[in-house]
């Protein structure tokens, strides 16, 4: 069970009571201002308690909130989007959706991971875990974007790449490696945004970018907390403990220089104002592109090199 959804329950109850009282008050001469005020104060208190300082595990759960805006919500909010399907070889992987788009009037190649909203869609999208075909679609679309001179914008949200027999048979590792390889020297600006979960190499395959943004309550880690717990202690149930150690929150990653910018979320999380959150992310991506398109190509590639080259390098 999602711990954020659990904790929201009390808040939602209070919200409904306040709304009901307000409706009542509007119809009755009795002054209920005091009662409403007290309830609102209580609401603010709980909200602060729940969301004021969130633990890493709570952030993981926020990033996985069932109502959190998904990749295709961002694509749907673009001015224009024409999906380009398939890896040209084996399958059209629905865990990754990409295509030509216009973002605030600018022509771009937009690529998003999507976990699916309802059960049917989750199955269709393999719960947002891309197979090699998904990454080969990324590689193909990035190459096409570079050929045409279109900036690339990516939206990252995956627990990780699909673990499975078929994915291994079709060389999942090679597919991710080639996506990184293509991004490394793609001769166009690239802006990546972590919008939910950035799980491992399956996320980074869309994250080798000139500017990396992150929604405030998203997480980005070397492995999913469950995966890390299983690797380290052979016990996926110790995910909460792993989450607390992995330093996977946006402020941690900004501190390490892994990401460049945090896009704020409304109190209570992105889903409290999905449209507004999506719009703010798109504005931030647009602003980043504004800067990047002015950088001469050679400098852009040099800076991309230096940006990742310095991570973990010994202090000079």
């Amino acid at each position: 069970m999602n711990v954020i959804v659990e904790r929201e329950k009390g808040l939602l109850e209070l919200e409904q009571r306040i709304a009901a009282l307000k409706a009542q008050a509007a119809q009755q001469p009795v002054d209920m201002g005091g009662v409403i005020e007290a309830l609102e104060a209580k609401y603010a208190e709980i909200q602060h308690e729940v969301f004021g300082t969130m633990t890493a595990w709570q952030r993981v759960n926020m990033a996985r909130h069932p109502k959190r805006p998904l990749g295709t919500d961002y694509l749907a909010a673009l001015d224009q989007f024409d999906e380009l399907h398939g890896d040209r070889h084996f399958h059209d992987d629905h865990a990754i959706v990409g295509g030509f788009a216009k973002l605030r009037g600018r022509r771009v190649m937009a690529i998003a991971q999507d976990k699916g909203r309802d059960t049917r869609e989750k199955v269709m999208r393999n719960f947002g875990m891309p197979a090699p075909e998904g990454y080969r679609k990324v590689t193909r679309l990035v190459a096409l974007a570079a050929h045409l001179g279109l900036p690339v914008v990516t939206f990252i949200d995956t627990n990780g790449a699909d673990p499975g027999i078929g994915s291994e048979e079709r060389a999942q590792a090679e597919a991710i490696a080639q996506a990184l390889y293509e991004l490394a020297d793609a001769r166009i600006p690239i802006v990546a945004t972590v919008i939910g979960e950035g799980g491992s190499g399956g996320a980074l395959a869309l994250g080798l970018a000139d500017r990396v943004l992150m929604l405030e309550h998203s997480v980005y880690s070397v492995a999913s907390p469950e995966g890390a717990a299983a690797i380290l202690w052979g016990d996926a149930a110790r995910a909460e403990e792993a989450a607390s150690r992995l330093r996977l929150t946006s402020d941690d990653l900004l501190h390490f220089g892994i990401i460049d910018e945090i896009v704020g979320e409304p109190v209570g999380g992105a889903h409290r104002d999905s449209a507004g959150t999506v719009a703010r992310v798109l504005d931030a991506v647009d602003a980043a592109l504004d800067t990047l398109v002015k950088v001469p190509l050679a400098d852009l590639l040099d800076r991309r090199y230096a940006k990742f080259r310095r991570i973990g390098a010994p202090p000079s």
């Binding site: 224009q80 024409d82 030509f100 022509r107 045409l148 001179g149 279109l150 900036p151 190509l297 852009l300």
Partner: peptide, 20 residues
């Protein structure tokens, strides 16, 4: 209409970006 949009993405991008 699709062809016109596809042409617009490719042709327009050449003018707007720092590509050649």
């Amino acid at each position: 209409p699709l062809l016109m949009r596809l042409l617009d993405y490719g042709v327009g991008a050449k003018q707007a970006s720092n590509g050649h």
